[in-house]
Simulated assay, not measured.
Amino acid sequence: MEFEEYLEAARQGDLKAQEEIIKMYRPLLIKNSMERNVFDEDLYQELSITLLNCIMKFKT
């Protein structure tokens, strides 16, 4: 499945598609969850939620 297909499925509530997109962006989410070289789990969760919210608002 290509990204666009995952995106559309995720927008329609497909949890597997949402999970795949999170996996695709996991390295970036982890990188941006580092605070002074320490992983911040709360920040990771907030970034993940923000990503999912952006997916739901994305207009095709």
Score class of each variant (00 low, 15 high):
residue 15 L to Q: 15
residue 3 F to Y: 15
residue 34 M to A: 08
residue 17 A to G: 06
residue 33 S to E: 14
residue 60 T to C: 00
residue 23 K to D: 13
residue 7 L to T: 13
residue 13 G to V: 07
residue 46 E to P: 01
residue 45 Q to H: 08
residue 10 A to S: 07
residue 22 I to D: 11
residue 17 A to N: 05
residue 4 E to L: 02
residue 40 D to Y: 00
residue 60 T to F: 04
residue 9 A to W: 00
residue 45 Q to N: 13
residue 53 N to H: 10
residue 40 D to N: 13
residue 51 L to D: 13
residue 1 M to R: 02
residue 56 M to W: 03
residue 30 I to V: 12
residue 8 E to A: 07
residue 30 I to H: 00
residue 59 K to L: 08
residue 16 K to T: 12
residue 32 N to C: 03
residue 42 D to Q: 09
residue 20 E to L: 07
residue 13 G to I: 08
residue 42 D to E: 14
residue 42 D to P: 00
residue 9 A to H: 02
residue 21 I to L: 12
residue 23 K to V: 09
residue 23 K to W: 06
residue 40 D to V: 01
residue 33 S to C: 08
residue 57 K to F: 10
residue 49 I to P: 00
residue 9 A to Y: 03
residue 20 E to K: 02
residue 50 T to Y: 07
residue 31 K to M: 09
residue 31 K to F: 02
residue 41 E to T: 07
residue 33 S to W: 00
residue 1 M to C: 05
residue 2 E to C: 01
residue 50 T to V: 08
residue 57 K to H: 12
residue 20 E to G: 01
residue 53 N to R: 11
residue 31 K to W: 01
residue 3 F to T: 13
residue 26 R to L: 15
residue 33 S to Y: 01
residue 9 A to M: 06
residue 39 F to I: 05
residue 5 E to G: 01
residue 25 Y to L: 15
residue 49 I to S: 11
residue 9 A to T: 04
residue 37 N to I: 02
residue 21 I to W: 02
residue 15 L to E: 15
residue 32 N to I: 02
residue 38 V to N: 14
residue 51 L to S: 10
residue 7 L to Q: 12
residue 12 Q to H: 10
residue 58 F to I: 05
residue 9 A to G: 05
residue 24 M to I: 13
residue 60 T to Q: 05
residue 37 N to M: 09
residue 45 Q to M: 07
residue 3 F to I: 11
residue 18 Q to Y: 05
residue 58 F to Y: 14
residue 15 L to F: 10
residue 25 Y to M: 14
residue 31 K to G: 06
residue 37 N to F: 01
residue 53 N to W: 05
residue 37 N to T: 07
residue 8 E to C: 02
residue 46 E to H: 06
residue 58 F to S: 12
residue 19 E to H: 03
residue 39 F to T: 08
residue 56 M to P: 01
residue 16 K to Y: 06
residue 40 D to R: 01
residue 52 L to A: 12
residue 19 E to V: 01
residue 16 K to G: 04
residue 7 L to E: 15
residue 24 M to E: 14
residue 45 Q to A: 12
residue 3 F to S: 15
residue 58 F to C: 10
residue 57 K to A: 14
residue 26 R to V: 03
residue 52 L to E: 14
residue 1 M to I: 10
residue 19 E to Y: 04
residue 31 K to V: 02
residue 9 A to I: 04
residue 22 I to K: 02
residue 20 E to S: 09
residue 30 I to N: 04
residue 6 Y to Q: 13
residue 59 K to D: 15
residue 46 E to G: 00
residue 19 E to L: 06
residue 11 R to I: 11
residue 52 L to N: 12
residue 7 L to F: 08
residue 23 K to E: 15
residue 43 L to C: 10
residue 51 L to A: 11
residue 50 T to R: 09
residue 23 K to C: 08
residue 39 F to R: 02
residue 52 L to M: 14
residue 28 L to T: 11
residue 26 R to A: 14
residue 28 L to A: 10
residue 11 R to F: 05
residue 12 Q to N: 14
residue 12 Q to Y: 04
residue 44 Y to N: 12
residue 43 L to R: 07
residue 44 Y to S: 09
residue 60 T to A: 04
residue 23 K to S: 13
residue 32 N to Y: 05
residue 4 E to H: 03
residue 37 N to P: 06
residue 51 L to W: 04
residue 58 F to T: 12
residue 16 K to Q: 11
residue 35 E to L: 07
residue 58 F to V: 09
residue 56 M to V: 11
residue 21 I to P: 00
residue 54 C to T: 08
residue 2 E to Q: 09
residue 1 M to P: 05
residue 5 E to M: 03
